[in-house]
């Protein structure tokens, strides 16, 4: 891929990282770098191994994991706090990436942290993107 396109893809990824909690969609991401949605989706996936939408959802769920571990917000509050509009989509994608639904993660994931050695806590709470990298069948 040519370097100029890669730089554009980087800008899109950085924008997702910065603005994931806002109502981003593929069209607005594509408009931001003056390319079509289809082109963006294909090039982004070629560069980073997942589509902008997948990257966005993974970023949101990473953040949701953190908020769920904190334990002071409900699952619904967290769903909207990380920029998801639909609790159903959020829960389904969360379960897909983390292995358990957000409610279970909140109940069972939270108590492991206090007093735990940081190196262990880091391993257990490892960002889901590492799991995303494993080959999974297309939905």
């Amino acid at each position: 891929m040519d370097l100029d396109t890669l730089v554009l893809m980087r800008r899109v990824r950085d924008r997702i990282d910065r603005e994931y909690a806002r109502p981003l969609d593929l069209e607005s991401l594509a408009r931001g770098v003056h390319v079509s949605s289809g082109h963006l989706s294909r090039q982004f996936k070629a560069a980073y191994g997942e589509t902008p939408y997948q990257y966005l959802m993974t970023r949101r769920i990473e953040r949701a994991m953190t908020l769920l571990r904190r334990g002071d917000l409900t699952v619904t509050e967290i769903c909207f706090a990380v920029g998801c509009q639909s609790l159903g989509t959020f829960s389904a994608r969360f379960t897909e990436l983390v292995g358990v639904p957000p409610s279970v993660y909140r109940a069972e994931g939270a108590p492991v942290l206090p007093g735990m050695a940081p190196c262990i806590a880091r391993r257990i709470t490892r960002p889901v993107r590492n799991r995303e990298a494993q080959p999974t069948p297309a939905p």
Partner: peptide, 9 residues
């Protein structure tokens, strides 16, 4: 290497 730098990875 240039690609990896450009894509910020």
């Amino acid at each position: 290497l240039l690609e990896v730098i450009a894509k910020g990875s």
